[in-house]
Amino acid sequence: MSSAEVHSTAIVAPGARLGNGVKVGPFCIVGRNVVLHDRVELVSHVSIDGHTEIGADTQVYPFASIGHKPQDLKYHGEASRLVIGERCTIRESVTINPGTENGGMLTKIGNDCLIMACAHVAHDAIIGNNVIMANYVGIAGHCQIGDNVIFGGTCVIHQFTRIGAHAFIGAQSMVDGDVIPYGMAVGNRATLTGLNLIGLKRRKFDREAIHQLRAAYRQIFASEGTLRERVEDAAELFKNDALVQEVVAFIAAASDRPILLPRNGNAAE
């Protein structure tokens, strides 16, 4: 038997599954296909619907709208899913939509994420672990966000964009190209402004690893040759460096969006 606590003013539809220690606060609404794992807390006035699963120890704050119909005209009621990981914090008025048939049928958010007030995660987005999204961040449909990415306030991320692990996106940026792992992007339209050195140091990356990343960054985004040639050169020069190879693989992978370049970067292929 579940030991969930449901406030007398809340509505939990028959079929919803509530784990042990779940708290459903005043005026919350939980749909029939929702799964709340152990110790999830809906503080108050939270609306959760659709085929939505929320991991253990996640907190959802007032007026969040989770799992409702995607804001996509191509959505026709398919039973797509939304999966939110463990120990996440979802603050006031956040909106998160499930997937669509055209995007893999799944929106997924990893563990230990902080999504601040009024942020939006659109259909078919895949968000990694330990991601921080400040207030009013908008993640468009089909985006892929790596682990440990930090978004400053009021960022907007174009659909199908990839943001590599450990990247930092400055406040008020509009990002319409892929951001390399460990990179930093700022502006409208955003440009690559270097490596996220502060983040790397805070996360205790080895000094030599940071030195190698900086050398590879200068190699990849130099002015001579094409980007493809420079990436191939970096792959060979730093063939034993796992972090550099991660950046190389990210750039080489197929994508719907161009790689974000420094302001003086050479985009020629």
Results as ranks from 00 to 15, higher is better:
156 V>A: 15
170 G>N: 08
151 F>T: 02
132 I>S: 05
143 C>K: 10
150 I>P: 01
151 F>A: 08
163 I>S: 11
150 I>Q: 10
126 I>D: 03
165 A>Q: 12
121 V>C: 07
122 A>T: 03
155 C>R: 05
168 F>W: 08
149 V>D: 09
149 V>E: 04
130 N>V: 00
145 I>Y: 06
161 T>K: 14
154 T>P: 00
154 T>R: 14
129 N>I: 06
136 Y>N: 11
126 I>A: 05
126 I>Y: 04
124 D>N: 11
129 N>D: 13
146 G>I: 05
163 I>R: 05
162 R>H: 14
153 G>M: 07
138 G>C: 15
132 I>C: 01
141 G>A: 08
155 C>E: 01
159 Q>Y: 12
150 I>M: 09
146 G>V: 02
136 Y>P: 00
136 Y>F: 08
142 H>A: 03
149 V>R: 03
130 N>Q: 04
169 I>E: 02
154 T>M: 13
138 G>E: 06
126 I>W: 02
146 G>W: 00
132 I>V: 13
136 Y>I: 04
157 I>E: 07
148 N>R: 14
169 I>Q: 10
139 I>H: 06
169 I>P: 01
143 C>W: 12
159 Q>E: 05
129 N>M: 01
120 H>P: 00
138 G>M: 14
166 H>M: 12
154 T>I: 14
131 V>C: 02
124 D>E: 02
124 D>T: 09
123 H>W: 02
141 G>K: 12
152 G>R: 01
120 H>S: 10
128 G>Y: 06
133 M>C: 04
144 Q>D: 07
164 G>I: 04
128 G>F: 09
154 T>C: 15
128 G>H: 03
157 I>A: 14
124 D>I: 13
167 A>K: 07
123 H>V: 09
122 A>E: 13
156 V>R: 15
167 A>P: 01
136 Y>L: 05
143 C>A: 13
130 N>F: 11
121 V>I: 15
166 H>I: 06
163 I>A: 12
151 F>P: 01
146 G>S: 08
165 A>M: 04
148 N>T: 07
164 G>K: 06
162 R>C: 07
152 G>Q: 01
155 C>A: 09
143 C>D: 07
166 H>S: 10
127 I>S: 03
154 T>H: 15
141 G>W: 04
164 G>S: 05
135 N>R: 11
169 I>S: 03
134 A>I: 09
137 V>L: 10
140 A>R: 10
164 G>Y: 06
159 Q>W: 11
139 I>Y: 13
126 I>E: 03
142 H>F: 07
152 G>T: 13
162 R>N: 14
129 N>Q: 01
140 A>P: 14
127 I>M: 00
158 H>L: 12
143 C>S: 11
144 Q>G: 04
143 C>G: 11
162 R>K: 15
169 I>G: 11
153 G>P: 13
170 G>S: 08
165 A>F: 00
149 V>M: 09
147 D>F: 11
161 T>Y: 07
161 T>A: 12
147 D>M: 12
157 I>V: 13
142 H>P: 05
158 H>Q: 14
121 V>S: 08
126 I>P: 00
122 A>G: 08
130 N>G: 01
156 V>M: 15
123 H>N: 03
168 F>V: 15
165 A>R: 15
121 V>Q: 03
169 I>Y: 00
121 V>D: 11
138 G>F: 14
124 D>V: 12
144 Q>K: 14
146 G>H: 05
166 H>Y: 15
